[in-house]
Simulated assay, not measured.
Amino acid sequence: MKTKQLWICSAIALASSAAHAQSSVTLFGVVDLGVQYTKGAGAGSVRALSNGGLSTSRIGFRGTEDLGGGLRAGFWLEGSLNPDSGTGRATNTNNQPTGATTAGGLTFDRMSYVSLSHDSWGEVRLGHDFIPTHYNSIYFDPFNANGVARAGNLTFAGVGTGPLPTAITGSNTVSYWLPGKLGGVYGMAMAGTGENDSSVANSDDGNFAGARLGYASGPFDIAAAVTRSQFSSTAAIGNYTHANIGGTWDAGFAKFFALYNRVTVKLAAGTVRKNTAEIGAHIPAGEVGRIRLSYAVLDDRSDSGLRTAGGLARSGDDARQLGAGYVHNLSKRTALYGTYARISNKGEARYVVSGGAAPASGRSSSGWEFGVRHLF
């Protein structure tokens, strides 16, 4: 009889615990593949199966546990995929060039964190996440930082034409996110570390901090962000600051986008400065279609002492990009899309459309892609 009573009491205790701490885990993802052709004037062309022309291919797991009193624990593990080759994407372990990995097995290069959140005081995350300025790059670019026409072809450029280690994501981070009930105000602050030994000369390399603050109400959404990363100055890298501001306005007949970026990198020989401005729109085309348009310009204002390989002032290495595309939704989960982009380079600039072949100095880069995206 005592044994039976013990089992009954244990069952009641477990049921009470489950009611108090409910949890859930979700598997989600995107598979996005297309046929792509890119050409670099004065160089060559590439025909390829492209990946992520509309949305980044990925697989992820997320979960929450209700701890009661408005408090929740959660986790998020999300990794990019290369479904054309069956591999995972590269990531960076310490926010420095030395921490770069190569594509291969699955890595949770997009998000990898554990969190505690509360309805009133917000959320704290620990792990790997997008940096504050990249959220603006995603939300205020008509191409959502994906495909041949992404604004990142210009805005991700640090010293050269590619991104620096902390331009998109950061490892070893702690971030705080404002709660969602602030009358349209939203924001977050983040700090990350390179985890270097304090006894080495470049012990601060890979350390960074940043913040994002925005306001969304009705058809308007606007946000500003800044991220500053520390690196010992060399010919290829140095203290890196990225600031941007962007916004959208949904006018009904079209949704308009604007994004302005300013990048500063303090090299040993001088300071690189790049300003990029983009405008664009989404225009409904029937009940299931959407036209996407964008125009971006990059103005290089680097120190006069910084020269190109040909001996010219690199401040003349400007560029402009035109992008146009169409998305046709077959369902809530599946869409067909097509995109075209062209970059016109000046001086000795060699900016290139995503996935493309690098052009000769000062020549154009162009490309198109047609693909299908499926969400699950």
Rank of each mutant, 00 (worst) to 15 (best):
K4D: 15
L259Q: 03
G286W: 03
G170Y: 08
F75M: 03
D119M: 04
G180P: 07
V35Y: 15
R301Y: 01
R58S: 07
D318L: 02
T26E: 13
G214V: 02
V46G: 03
V200Q: 15
V31I: 13
G63E: 00
R62P: 00
S120Q: 15
W368T: 09
F143C: 01
G338T: 14
R125W: 00
A103T: 13
G252M: 10
S304K: 09
I131M: 03
G69F: 02
R314Y: 01
L81H: 08
G69Q: 10
V372G: 06
A145V: 07
K2Q: 12
L77G: 04
G68Q: 04
V159C: 09
L106E: 11
S203R: 14
I12V: 11
V159F: 06
R89C: 05
Q22V: 01
D299P: 04
A224D: 05
L49Y: 06
S198C: 07
K255I: 02
S57I: 09
N172P: 08
A73C: 08
S344N: 12
A277N: 10
R89L: 05
V263D: 01
A19V: 06
Q36V: 05
G44Q: 13
I222E: 05
I291S: 03
L67A: 05
A13I: 12
A201V: 11
H20F: 12
R292S: 14
G305S: 13
G42N: 00
S294T: 02
S115A: 15
K346C: 06
H242P: 06
N261E: 02
F61P: 00
S315H: 10
V265I: 09
S365N: 04
R342M: 10
E278F: 04
S171T: 06
N146R: 08
K181S: 15
G311A: 08
Y176H: 05
S331G: 09
V185I: 01
S120M: 12
A236L: 13
L27P: 00
D317I: 03
A357C: 03
V200S: 14
G210P: 05
G206I: 06
F140N: 05
A269R: 07
P284D: 07
D197P: 13
Y139P: 00
D299C: 11
I168H: 08
G105Q: 03
A189T: 11
